[in-house]
Design a binder for these strands. Structure first.
Lengths: 146, 146
DNA sequence: TATTGTTATACTCTATAACTATA
DNA sequence: TATAGTTATAGAGTATAACAATA
């Protein structure tokens, strides 16, 4: 690509940021509007719902979120009765987190909505294009294939 | 997709955000480390270098950046001698912006680096995969094909 | 000494309202 | 009234250092 031909509009980081921002807005509006969640709160809720009770450090390892963010998300979610903390009697530094019934309902609702939202995002792309897109994104994000 | 199969790791907004963040870091480190630019400053500099002198409102229209962000970026770039403002005598509300020689050098350097960076990002993807990826991203970002 | 979780701090990015000066 | 540009403010995201309690 000659220097004079270079254009931001084709620059991958730019394209990715625009697409990420646009594609996040709709779903964000739902979980924020319905439950008042921030992004990290939705992600913490998701991991507890999907993989069962665990500690903040374990969530962090799975979701690649720093423990300070998790700490604040857990505080808000607990305060608002979406999850509960249980002290680990064998190691009193640790707190095992799990969803309340309210949290589980939110989790299930949000998963359903997310699946629909995902399908809406890729409507207009062929099966093959969707496959290439997700594989390329996993590659760019350094997420192993499985 | 059954509800129990849904996983954030395949959720498009999540994948896009991870890929966008990862792919932005390296280039951001360069323009921040070398010139001390923030993202909006690099984008404003780019538009003036690529399309010639124009006003803040015109940059905003081209780059889809709000005028308040542009105002702050222009203030910083002017203060640091990367661009100059010239009052439009025919309409004294408008200020025509253009790059200084210093600004042009930074623009040319950053464009070269960006082109290389872009190639590095997609190394490992076939030509066809790259084409599908960019087209899909433009589709998701609602950026017209040309 | 190392680990779990919390708090404090700072910086970036985004969004909106209100203001000025000009037209 | 409308437009170009500025300033103020608030919310959200990110990153890091330092701390208390426990191991």
């Amino acid at each position: 690509m000659a220097r004079s031909d270079f254009d931001l509009i084709d620059f991958l980081p730019y394209l990715l940021n625009q697409a990420a921002e646009k594609s996040s807005l709709g779903f964000q509006a739902y979980y924020k509007g319905t439950y008042g969640f921030l992004r990290t709160e939705w992600r913490v809720l998701f991991h507890l719902g999907r993989y069962g009770e665990m500690t903040a450090v374990e969530i962090g390892a799975r979701a690649m979120i720093h423990k300070t963010k998790i700490s604040r998300a857990v505080a808000r979610l607990t305060e608002r009765r979406f999850l509960t903390r249980r002290e680990d009697m064998a190691d009193r530094r640790r707190e095992v987190l799990s969803l309340t019934p309210l949290g589980r309902k939110a989790f299930e609702d949000l998963c359903e909505k997310a699946a629909v939202y995902d399908r809406d995002c890729v409507a207009g792309l062929s099966e093959e294009e969707q496959r290439v897109l997700r594989a390329a994104l996993r590659h760019l994000a350094n997420i192993p294939r499985d």
